[in-house]
Design a protein around this nucleic acid. Structure first.
Length: 168
DNA sequence: TTAGTGATATCC
DNA sequence: GATATCACTAAA
C-alpha cells in the first residue's frame, strides 16, 4: 500500500519512527523498479532546532521546509553528496525527516546515489509521484533510538535529542 | 585521519 | 565581492 498525504501531514516526531521499515520505491526511466527498505531516519524539527536548516530563518534553501508536507527536500552536502528528506507537518511549520539509510545502503548519500536522486527531485511530491514513492508492506519492526549524527555544531541540547530511529 | 567538493550563509 | 562552513564518503 502506498503511503498517502495523510501519513506525512502529522508531526515528524510521529512520522520518523513509522517510516522505519517502510519501503522506498524508485521507478527509473527504463521502467525498472528499485525497492529499498528504510532502515534509519532522523528528525529535523523547527527553527529552534539548531541542527535544522530552518534554524537560520526562512532562507531560499530552507523555504521548502515551510511548505506542504509530502514534498521531497534534496540538498547538497559537502559539495559531493545529495541528501534526501521528506517534509512533514503543517504548512509554515519547518520540519522534516531525513532518509538516513536503507537496506544495503548505509549512509544518506549512498541511498540517494542508488536511487539516482539529485536536485531535480527537490520540491517534488513523494505522494502520487510516478517516479518515487513510499509503500507500507505491513512490517512493524523493532526500532531503537539514538542521537543524531554529524551535528556537533548544534549544541548539546540538540545533539542529545533521541531523534534518530534505527531498525533493529 | 584526511582529502575531496561546491552550494549556502554570512561577512564585508 | 570574499570566505567559512557543512545533516558525508572513501581511501589510507
Amino acid at each position: 500500500m502506498k503511503l498517502g498525504k495523510d501519513f506525512f501531514n502529522r508531526d515528524c516526531l510521529d512520522i520518523a519512527p513509522e517510516l522505519v521499515g517502510k519501503i522506498l520505491v524508485r521507478k527509473f526511466e527504463n521502467g525498472e523498479e528499485l525497492r529499498v527498505r528504510i532502515t534509519e531516519t532522523e528528525i529535523y524539527r523547527g527553527e529552534e532546532d539548531k541542527a535544522c536548516h530552518a534554524s537560520r530563518g526562512r532562507t531560499p534553501r530552507a523555504e521548502i521546509l515551510y511548505r506542504e508536507s509530502g514534498l521531497i527536500y534534496v540538498y547538497l552536502c559537502y559539495g559531493i553528496h545529495w541528501l534526501m528528506n521528506v517534509i512533514t507537518g503543517e504548512k509554515e511549520q519547518p520540519q522534516g525527516v531525513l532518509f538516513r539509510a536503507g537496506e544495503g545502503y548505509n549512509g544518506p548519500a549512498k541511498l540517494t546515489k542508488a536511487l539516482q536522486i539529485d536536485k531535480s527531485f527537490n520540491g517534488k511530491m513523494l505522494v502520487g509521484n510516478p517516479e518515487i514513492w513510499v509503500e507500507d508492506d505491513g512490517l512493524r519492526p523493532e526500532i531503537k533510538t539514538d542521537k543524531r549524527v554529524g551535528i556537533d555544531y548544534a549544541g548539546e541540547e540538540w545533539i542529545n535529542k533521541q531523534w534518530r530511529f534505527i531498525m533493529s
